[in-house]
Computed example of a mutant assay.
Amino acid sequence: MNIAKKIDHTMLKADSTKETIIRYCQEAKEHGFASVCVNTCHATLVASELKGTDVKTCCVVGFPLGAMMTSAKAFEASEAVKAGASEIDMVINIGAVKDKDWDFVRDDIKAVVDASKPAIVKVIIETCLLTEEEKRKACQLSEEAGAAFVKTSTGFSTGGATIEDIKLMKETVGDRLQVKASGGIRTRAFTEELIAAGADRIGAGNGVILL
């Protein structure tokens, strides 16, 4: 199985330097990864490093808590796209999910989807903090809001991707949306299990090791 094309080579640590980001871009080009996923401050650098390749520039928005104003998320997304991002991974408003404020959750996602065009949006639902019912609802709202993917985790909370969550998310969105697994993916074997369970994309900080 050629998994390279499914990997978002990810570096989101607060102390990541330009040197580190450039190395990630070089590795992504060498191995043919799907994208390099970074914080928005690195969007211009990554887009420049990846120019002329088919490796995409992916940026996280509202990361890692998802708890900022909708307008701030939308602005961050639009600025990242202007800087060269073609994929946006946004964090859902988890508190609003807990409040069952479904209109707010949907509108929060839709604002980012609209601000990101023509880039696609992956919605990070932070599965480790949600009940099964909340996971399903978050996936449904992501679809209603026009997202392209639902994604398990930031990798910065209490847990990461699980086989069970990928199956549940895939069951909920079918072939209408794609599913991204992220958080705690450290071995080739686990990567292949996640893909078999329905993951279309893998977010990992150690993409080279997974190969």
Rank of each mutant, 00 (worst) to 15 (best):
residue 74 A to C: 07
residue 109 I to R: 06
residue 175 D to E: 14
residue 156 F to Y: 02
residue 149 F to P: 06
residue 178 Q to P: 04
residue 88 I to F: 02
residue 156 F to C: 10
residue 150 V to S: 04
residue 154 T to C: 00
residue 152 T to K: 08
residue 84 G to W: 03
residue 135 K to Q: 13
residue 70 T to V: 04
residue 179 V to D: 00
residue 109 I to Q: 00
residue 115 A to V: 04
residue 139 C to Y: 00
residue 190 F to E: 15
residue 95 G to H: 13
residue 72 A to N: 12
residue 142 S to E: 01
residue 107 D to Q: 13
residue 105 V to D: 11
residue 67 A to R: 08
residue 67 A to C: 15
residue 181 A to E: 12
residue 126 E to H: 08
residue 126 E to P: 09
residue 142 S to F: 00
residue 100 K to Y: 15
residue 176 R to C: 12
residue 190 F to N: 10
residue 135 K to R: 14
residue 68 M to C: 14
residue 91 V to C: 11
residue 117 K to G: 12
residue 166 I to M: 01
residue 173 V to R: 02
residue 133 E to F: 04
residue 127 T to Q: 09
residue 184 G to H: 12
residue 113 V to E: 06
residue 85 A to Y: 04
residue 151 K to M: 07
residue 109 I to T: 01
residue 99 D to E: 15
residue 175 D to V: 13
residue 153 S to W: 02
residue 65 L to C: 12
residue 103 D to E: 15
residue 92 I to Y: 00
residue 100 K to T: 00
residue 140 Q to T: 10
residue 169 M to H: 00
residue 118 P to S: 03
residue 61 V to L: 13
residue 137 K to Q: 15
residue 156 F to M: 11
residue 102 W to F: 04
residue 152 T to R: 14
residue 126 E to N: 03
residue 117 K to M: 14
residue 120 I to P: 03
residue 153 S to Y: 04
residue 121 V to Y: 11
residue 139 C to A: 09
residue 132 E to Y: 10
residue 93 N to Y: 06
residue 181 A to C: 05
residue 73 K to H: 08
residue 114 D to F: 08
residue 109 I to N: 06
residue 65 L to W: 15
residue 102 W to A: 10
residue 114 D to K: 09
residue 102 W to K: 11
residue 65 L to F: 15
residue 85 A to S: 09
residue 160 G to D: 05
residue 167 K to P: 01
residue 175 D to I: 00
residue 103 D to H: 05
residue 96 A to T: 08
residue 101 D to V: 09
residue 101 D to Q: 09
residue 147 A to G: 05
residue 67 A to Q: 13
residue 173 V to Q: 05
residue 89 D to L: 06
residue 165 D to F: 10
residue 71 S to R: 14
residue 165 D to C: 02
residue 124 I to E: 01
residue 83 A to E: 15
residue 89 D to F: 07
residue 152 T to P: 02
residue 147 A to S: 00
residue 62 G to H: 12
residue 123 V to A: 06
residue 112 V to P: 01
residue 130 L to I: 07
residue 173 V to M: 07
residue 168 L to R: 02
residue 101 D to F: 12
residue 139 C to E: 02
residue 118 P to N: 04
residue 61 V to T: 11
residue 127 T to R: 09
residue 132 E to V: 02
residue 156 F to V: 05
residue 103 D to K: 15
residue 177 L to P: 10
residue 78 S to Y: 03
residue 68 M to I: 15
residue 132 E to R: 14
residue 104 F to C: 07
residue 129 L to V: 13
residue 136 R to V: 15
residue 87 E to N: 13
residue 130 L to C: 05
residue 86 S to M: 12
